[in-house]
């Protein structure tokens, strides 16, 4: 039985953002998608841009993002979020347009759309959640699955000879002249969540400069398909994901603007 503490003389210093709908998200316990959703919605609330923000949901675990984010959204075909976002942004250049995509969506089936949107410098924010596995379909190998990592379609661990290398998208898109701001963050500790929020805020605000694409990669967990507890999965992320996907700033052409 937990304890009850009186809230008398206390200030509310943190609460769920109003831009997140009053819905229980379908994500598995401990999944980083929930944190990423919340951060994006906190930013929309704090920047006061709910009326001017259009989100593009992917195919994958976050396919239902529009049930949770209280903004106008479109659900794109698998991999096509960046093309859909391009269509929206070109018609409404003064709106904030973002895609929210997983690794299969952004870095396998949608690599072409991703790279060309970044290369054109579409003035959108791409939120890329990389958890190294296909979640929605039940744990198959992703383009970002690590060498040696076991999934249902590489049951003895990903082998380079058969499956190639895990793809590092932040490094890749940072090479393109169309991107202005690229950062890789994580959401598995309180400090990293704060940092991720700063990065996402900067990415959204960069759209006001109309200078190009902002790309935020969020290295995240998938307790269910990694077959770990949420706490174990966050440790595994530290020990295995981050050495291959180093956190940090990959490109910043907007600071000081």
């Amino acid at each position: 039985m937990g304890i009850t503490v009186s809230l008398e003389n206390m200030d509310k210093i943190y609460e769920r953002p109003k831009t997140l709908k009053d819905q229980v998200m379908h994500y598995c316990p401990g999944c980083g998608h929930g944190v990423a959703h919340r951060l994006v919605m906190e930013i929309v609330a704090e920047l006061g841009i709910q009326e001017k923000t259009i989100g593009i949901a992917p195919v994958g675990c976050s396919v239902f993002a529009y049930y949770y984010m209280d903004i106008d959204m479109q659900e794109a075909a698998h991999g096509r979020a960046c093309a859909v976002a391009t269509g929206v942004k070109r018609m409404m250049p003064d709106h904030y347009v973002f895609t929210y995509q997983g690794d299969g969506d952004l870095a396998a089936i949608g690599t072409n759309e991703t790279i060309h949107a970044c290369n054109r410098g579409e003035n959108i924010t791409i939120v890329f959640v990389n958890n190294a596995v296909y979640g929605m379909t039940g744990g198959q190998m992703a383009p970002t699955t690590l060498i040696g990592q076991i999934t249902t379609t590489c049951p003895s661990g990903r082998e380079q000879v058969a499956n190639g290398y895990p793809i590092r998208m932040s490094e890749l898109v940072a090479q393109l002249p169309g991107t202005t701001y690229v950062e890789r963050v994580a959401v598995n500790t309180p400090a990293r969540v704060r940092k991720a929020k700063k990065a996402l805020t900067k990415a959204f605000k960069s759209q006001e400069l109309k200078k190009g694409t902002s790309f935020i990669e969020i290295v995240s967990n998938c307790p269910s398909n990694w077959k770990m507890t949420p706490v174990e999965s966050n440790k595994w992320l530290d020990e295995n994901m981050l050495p291959y996907y180093p956190l940090g700033l990959y490109k910043d052409e907007i600071s000081g603007e």
């Binding site: 259009i54 593009i56 479109q74 794109a76 075909a77 096509r80 093309a83 859909v84 976002a85 391009t86 269509g87 929206v88 070109r90 018609m91 409404m92 072409n112 759309e113 060309h116």
Partner: peptide
Amino acid sequence: TVFLQAESELAAINMLYGAAGAGFKV
């Protein structure tokens, strides 16, 4: 009128989806 040469027909039709979804005559 907005004109954009897409990187493929796949991208073009999905740009159309986005633009039509935003209520434009495209």
